[in-house]
Design a protein around this nucleic acid. Structure first.
Length: 369
DNA sequence: GACGCGTGGTC
DNA sequence: TGACCAAGCGT
């Protein structure tokens, strides 16, 4: 987009926006210093996640891993545990991998060149955010906020779920970004989107750049941005079982390395809707070499809604009566842990619900009476 | 380009 | 109360 075609006064727009930001920006933990590592962690956590949700996780994460080297040297399981409940767990695994890469290949200094794009989990937005916020480089950082704000100001009606649209906005930001204060400019656009130019019922009367806004002029700000809605989510019926051996240990299972909730832990479970539990019994013997006795009664029903999927889990309890095949158990992803130690493993929220419902109840009594 | 990938808050 | 949304990225 050519500067001459822009219908706004760039200098005035920048000035109005930056003045408002200077007076209204929130005091956030990652805004208190310029450590690129801290900026990086905050940006990963903030992906698709609200500020209020991130703050406690960020504080805890920084006390656990205060420096890039500290995170690089940590065990992946520890990192996942610190991420527990935050969702999109590949963010944690990719961040950890990328931080190790920076320690090994970049002398523990977060790159401030094109190299930054090579880091796992650092896409176009995050790269631009780190470059501008941590290093003061005038790079665009186009997220959902920025697209919403700019689609309204410039009356841009392209579907923002398309990559091509994001690229148009990046080109636009290249034109209007403050060369002197790129960090504040990018953050100001996002802050405006979060506080004033909200998805629904934007506070246009309080907006510092309403005079520049074409959508406001036409009264269609609530119709923007244009975003194609996704298809309906699918439901999956699951059966999970909390199994205890004679010593009172609980059986838990680690999920595969890839895919949904990768590497997190859970109670053994299979897909299926029937109330007949023989399939779980058979599964436990085939998969883990265990002879189990399951109480044929649903002890808890858990419904968990993901962004793209719904789990409806019938939860059972039972005992492990015999280890039929020790090698099968060792070769499986399952293991027995002390009841009190289950908390040390990273669990998705869906199975935390099972923990709260079953494991912290009077499970021994339920099983043995 | 389309889809998989979490969770909690809002109206 | 269900649908929508949030500082996106990898495949």
């Amino acid at each position: 987009m050519e500067k001459e075609k822009l219908d706004i006064n760039i200098a005035k727009f920048q000035g109005d926006l930056l003045k408002w930001y200077g007076e209204n920006k929130r005091d956030l933990p990652w805004r208190r210093e310029r450590d690129p590592y801290r900026i990086w962690v905050s940006e990963i956590m903030l992906q698709q996640t609200k500020v209020d949700t991130v703050i406690p996780y960020f504080e805890r994460f920084m006390s656990l891993f205060p420096t890039l080297d500290a995170l690089a040297d940590a065990e992946e399981e520890t990192v996942l545990k610190a991420w527990e409940g935050l969702g999109y767990y590949s963010r944690a695994r990719n961040l950890h991998q990328a931080v190790k890469e920076v320690k090994e290949s970049y002398n523990s200094k977060v790159p401030h060149t094109e190299e930054i794009h090579k880091l796992k989990g650092v896409g176009p937005y995050t790269a631009g955010a780190i470059l501008s916020i941590a290093y003061g480089i005038p790079a665009p950082a186009v997220d959902g906020n920025v697209m919403r704000v700019l689609s309204r100001i410039f009356l841009m009606k392209d579907d923002i779920s398309k990559v091509s649209t994001r690229k148009k906005f990046e080109a636009l930001v290249e034109e209007i970004i403050s060369q002197e204060q790129p960090s504040d400019f990018n953050q100001a656009l996002m802050e405006l989107g979060a506080l004033i130019c909200t998805p629904r019922s934007p506070s246009c009367l309080l907006c510092p750049v309403q005079a520049h806004c074409e959508a406001r002029e036409e009264g269609i700000q609530e119709q923007l941005p244009v975003k194609i809605k996704k298809t309906a989510v699918k439901e999956k019926n699951m059966k999970a079982v909390v199994l205890m051996d004679k010593a009172g240990k609980v059986l838990i299972e680690q999920r595969p390395d890839t895919g949904l909730l990768a590497k997190l832990w859970q109670f053994p479970n299979i897909e299926g809707a029937s109330k007949d539990i023989s399939d779980i019994t058979n599964y436990m013997e085939a998969e883990a070499g265990l002879k189990v006795n399951i109480v044929p009664e649903v002890k808890q029903h858990v419904k968990h809604v993901f962004s793209h999927l719904i789990w409806k889990i019938d939860v059972y309890i039972g005992t492990v009566d015999e280890i039929v095949n020790e090698n099968t158990l060792k070769g499986s992803s399952m293991q027995f842990v002390e009841k009190e130690d289950v908390d040390w493993y990273p669990f998705p929220v869906s199975h935390q619900k099972i923990m709260d419902g079953i494991l912290k109840g009077d499970i021994e009594n339920w099983i043995y009476n």
